[in-house]
Write a protein that binds this DNA or RNA. Structure first.
Lengths: 223, 223
DNA sequence: GGCAAGAAACATGCATACTTGTCTGTCTGT
DNA sequence: ACAGACAGACAAGTATGCATGTTTCTTGCC
C-alpha cells in the first residue's frame, strides 16, 4: 500500500495506467480542438506531459491511439446514457427534459468526437474496423434507452425506435450545422418544434399521456 | 460546340475555363473519395489531367481550390433545389416524393461534400471565411423552397421553416450515420416515420390537406 | 532481506516520406 | 514580341515510425 505523497515507487501498472490515461485524454482534447489530421502525435504527447517515445511505447501508432481513445470515450457515454435511462424509468425526467438532455449531450464534445472519428474512419480502414463495433454498441445502448423511456406507454415498438433514432439524427444534423451557422434561436426553435412533434405523434398513436410539460408543449419557443 | 478534332486553336479563355473546370471536378471527386487531408494537390492535378503548375497558376493554393470548388458545387445544388421548388409549386411533387427527393440529394455526394468541407473549415479560418457566406445562401435557397412548398396551405410561417429545417437536419444526421452503419431498411423506416410525422403535424396544424399519399398513388412510397 | 539481472516504462535523435508553394523555363495564343 | 497558360524542378517544412539510450520497477537467488 503506497501513500499518494510518494511520487516514486509506483507500481509499473500504475505508471502505465496513468500515462495511458493522460495520452487518451490529450488525444480526445486535441481531436476536438484540431481535428484528426491536425492533431499531431507530438502535440498529443506534449499535452499529455509525456514524450513521443512513451506514446509509441503504449500504442502501436497514431491510429491505434485515436481508435482506443474514441472507444474509451464512447464507452463512457454509453454509461452516461444508461444513467439517463434509469432516471427516465424512475420518472424523474420528462420528455421535454429528455430532449434537452440529449441535445446537451449531442451538441457538445460527443458530437465533435463523433464527427471527427467518422470523417477520419471514412478513409481509414483500420479506424473503421476498430470503430464500427463500438458504434454498434453505442447505438444499441441508445435503442435500449429509448425503449425504456416509452416502456409502459403502450406505444408500438417500431414506432418508438424510429422516433428515437430520428431524434438523434436530428440532433446530429443540427450539431453539424452549428459549425458553420451560429444561431442559438434557430436551434431552440427546432428543438421546440421537435418536442411538439414528439408530443403530437405519441399522443396520436395511442392516446396515452406522456410526461411532456404540464401545460403547453412549446414553452421554450420564446427564445 | 467546337469539333473535337481541333484540339488546337482554342482561345485562351476556353483553355482556362476547361482546365479550371477539370480541376474543380477533380477536386470535388477526390474530396468525396479521399477527404480533405488525403486529397493532395498532386492527385487532383493528375486526375484533372494537368500538372501542379497549372493548378497553381489558376488557384492561389489548395485551400483556394477547395473553397472555389465547394462554392461551385453548392451553387449548382442551389439551382437544382430551386428547380425542385418549381416542381413543387407546379403541384407535380407530393410531400412524400419531396422527402424522398431530398433524401436522395442529401444521402449522396451533397452530404459528403458538406461533411468534408465543414470538417475542414472547422479548423481552417480561410475556408471558413470563404464558405460561410455560400452556406448562408444555400440555406436561404432551401428556406425559400420549403416556404414555396407550403405556400397556400395556410400553415404558419415559423412552423413551416422549423419543419423544413428539421427535415434537413434529420437527413444530415442520417447521412452521417450511413458512414459507419450500413442498414438501408433502418433508413427507410426513419424516412417513413418522418413522412407520417410531417403529415400528422401539418394536418393537425390547420386541417389543410396536403398532397401526401392518399390522393395520388405514390410510386416510391412502397419501399 | 538485499542485490544483481532482466524487463518494462520511458526519453531522444534520426531518417524517411510526403506535401505544399515557389521559381524558372517553354509553349501557345494575341 | 508580348502575355497568359502551362510544365517541371527545387527547397522548406513537417509528421511519423524506428532504433537506440536511460531510468524505473520486478524478480529470482543468495
Amino acid at each position: 500500500m503506497v501513500h499518494l505523497v510518494e511520487k516514486q515507487r509506483r507500481t509499473q501498472e500504475e505508471r502505465s495506467a496513468e500515462t495511458r490515461g493522460r495520452l487518451v485524454d490529450a488525444t480526445l482534447d486535441l481531436l476536438v480542438e484540431r481535428g484528426y489530421a491536425l492533431a499531431t502525435t507530438a502535440d498529443i504527447a506534449r499535452r499529455a506531459g509525456v514524450t513521443r517515445g512513451a506514446l509509441n511505447h503504449h500504442f502501436s501508432g497514431k491510429d491505434d491511439l485515436i481508435a482506443q481513445s474514441v472507444c474509451h470515450q464512447l464507452r463512457g457515454w454509453i454509461e452516461e446514457i444508461r444513467e439517463v435511462a434509469r432516471q427516465v424509468q424512475g420518472g424523474s425526467l420528462s420528455l421535454s427534459a429528455f430532449v434537452d438532455r440529449m441535445w446537451e449531450l449531442f451538441s457538445g464534445r460527443l458530437f465533435l468526437v463523433t464527427l471527427e472519428h467518422i470523417t477520419a474512419a471514412r478513409h481509414n480502414p483500420y479506424l473503421r474496423e476498430q470503430l464500427v463495433p463500438v458504434t454498434r454498441q453505442f447505438h444499441s445502448a441508445l435503442d435500449e434507452t429509448w425503449r425504456d423511456f416509452f416502456d409502459g406507454t403502450g406505444l408500438r415498438e417500431p414506432e418508438v425506435e424510429a422516433a428515437f433514432n430520428a431524434t438523434l439524427c436530428l440532433m446530429r444534423g443540427m450539431s453539424l450545422q452549428t459549425i458553420l451557422r451560429e444561431d442559438p434561436a434557430y436551434y431552440a426553435r427546432l428543438l421546440g418544434f421537435w418536442k411538439s412533434v414528439l408530443a403530437n405523434h405519441s399522443a396520436q398513436g395511442t392516446g396515452a399521456s406522456l410526461p411532456m410539460t404540464s401545460e403547453r408543449p412549446d414553452k421554450d419557443d420564446s427564445k
